[in-house]
C-alpha cells in the first residue's frame, strides 16, 4: 500500500529476509501499488465487505462503463483503424509514397487485381492513396488542433481569471477572428504564406484559438468565484498556480470533448480546402483526390467515391467518439 511506503521503505524491510521472500515481497509490493493506482477500492483496508462491493461498483461505473455504448465503441474502432492505417501505411500498401506520387500509365483505369480500387488520372493506385491519405489528415489535424488548444486555453484562462482590461483586449481580438468564416480565413492565410503543409497547420491552429478560449473562459469565470480558489489564495498560491493548477483541471472537460469533435471538423474542412485547390499539391490527400476526380464522376466514379467514403468514416469516427465522451463526462448523468 502507498501509505506504508510513506513511513517505511519496503526494500529496507525485505532486506533482512531471505532472497526468495525479497522477490516475493517486491513483487507483491508492485502488485499492490498497481492495484492501488488503478482500483480505488483496494486503497481501503478495513472497509466492510458490503462497502467494498459498493466502492468497486462505483469505480467500475466511472467513465469506462459509460463509454461502453455501441456507437462509442464503433467510433473508437474507426479512430483506431485510421490511426493504424496512418502509422503502418507502408505495410498496408504495396506501393511506396514515391510511386503513389509519381506519374504512371493507366489514366482512370477501373479496378483490377493490381489496383483493387482503380487508378487516378495519372495512373496512381487509389487504395494506396487512401492509405497514405490518412497520414496527411492526421498530421495536419492533430498538430493544428493542439496548437489552438494550447494557446486557446492559455488566453482563455488568463482572460477569464483576470477579467477587466486583459479580458477585454484578448476577447475583442478573438471576436475579430470569429467574425470571419474559418475556411475563408484559412484560404487568406495560405494565400499570404505558401501552399505548404506547415502553413496549413498553422492557419488551422490560429483559426481554432478563439473557439477554445471562449469555451474555457466561461468555465473559468464560474470557477474563479468558488471557495476552493479562495482557499488556494489563502494557502498563498500565486495567480499562475491558481490558474493552471487549481482552476484549469476543473475546466478542461468541455475542451476535451470539443477537441475530439473538432478533429473531425478540421479533417472535413481540410478536405474542403484541398478541393478548392489551396492545399499542398505534393501531398497525398483525400480532398485533393476528390478535386481531381470531380470532372469524371460518370466515367470514373471510383476516383471520387473512395476518398469521399474515407473522409466520411474518419469524421464520423471522431464525432461518435466525441459524443460518447461527452455523455461519459456529463455531470448531469453522473449521479443517476
Amino acid at each position: 500500500m502507498e501509505h506504508e511506503s510513506l513511513t517505511q521503505e519496503p526494500e529496507k524491510k525485505t532486506k533482512s529476509k531471505e532472497s526468495d521472500n525479497v522477490i516475493k515481497n517486491i513483487f507483491s509490493w508492485i502488485i499492490n501499488n498497481i492495484k492501488f493506482l488503478l482500483i480505488p477500492a483496494s486503497r481501503l483496508d478495513d472497509l466492510t465487505f458490503r462497502e467494498r462491493e459498493y466502492e468497486m461498483k462505483i469505480s467500475k461505473r466511472k467513465f469506462i462503463r459509460r463509454l461502453k455504448s455501441t456507437l462509442t465503441i464503433l467510433g473508437i474502432s474507426i479512430i483506431f483503424f485510421i490511426v493504424t492505417l496512418a502509422v503502418f501505411a507502408p505495410w498496408f500498401s504495396q506501393y511506396s509514397f514515391e510511386h503513389l506520387a509519381g506519374i504512371h500509365t493507366g489514366m482512370w483505369d477501373p479496378p483490377s487485381p493490381e489496383h483493387p480500387l482503380g487508378q487516378t488520372n495519372l495512373g496512381r493506385d487509389i487504395l494506396g492513396r487512401m492509405i497514405y491519405g490518412s497520414r496527411a489528415s492526421l498530421t495536419i489535424a492533430l498538430p493544428a488542433i493542439f496548437f489552438s488548444l494550447v494557446f486557446g486555453v492559455i488566453f482563455g484562462v488568463i482572460a477569464g481569471f483576470y477579467g477587466g482590461w486583459p479580458e477585454s483586449i484578448i476577447m475583442r481580438i478573438m471576436d475579430i477572428f470569429l467574425a470571419f468564416p474559418g475556411l475563408i480565413l484559412a484560404m487568406v492565410f495560405i494565400y499570404i504564406w505558401e501552399q505548404r503543409i506547415e502553413y496549413i497547420m498553422l492557419a488551422y491552429g490560429i483559426i481554432g484559438i478563439p473557439y477554445y478560449s471562449r469555451l474555457i473562459r466561461g468555465s473559468v469565470i464560474q470557477a474563479r468565484e468558488l471557495p476552493y480558489v479562495q482557499a488556494a489564495k489563502v494557502a498563498g498560491a500565486s495567480n499562475w498556480r491558481i490558474m493552471f493548477k487549481h482552476i484549469l483541471p476543473n475546466c478542461i472537460q468541455p475542451v476535451i470533448i470539443s477537441f475530439t469533435f473538432d478533429i473531425g471538423g478540421i479533417i472535413l474542412s481540410l478536405a474542403g480546402l484541398s478541393f478548392l485547390g489551396f492545399s499542398d499539391p505534393q501531398l497525398i490527400e483525400w480532398g485533393n483526390d476528390i478535386a481531381e476526380a470531380r470532372g469524371h464522376l460518370y466515367d470514373a466514379p471510383w476516383g471520387a467515391m473512395w476518398p469521399g467514403i474515407m473522409i466520411l468514416i474518419t469524421v464520423l469516427g471522431f464525432m461518435l467518439f466525441g459524443d460518447g465522451l461527452r455523455d461519459a463526462l456529463d455531470p448531469r448523468l453522473r449521479n443517476l
Partner: peptide, 12 residues
C-alpha cells in the same frame, strides 16, 4: 469556509 463541498478542489 462555509461550504465544505466547494472549498476542496474536486480534482485534487
Amino acid at each position: 469556509f462555509q461550504d465544505p463541498d466547494s472549498s476542496l478542489n474536486p480534482r485534487w
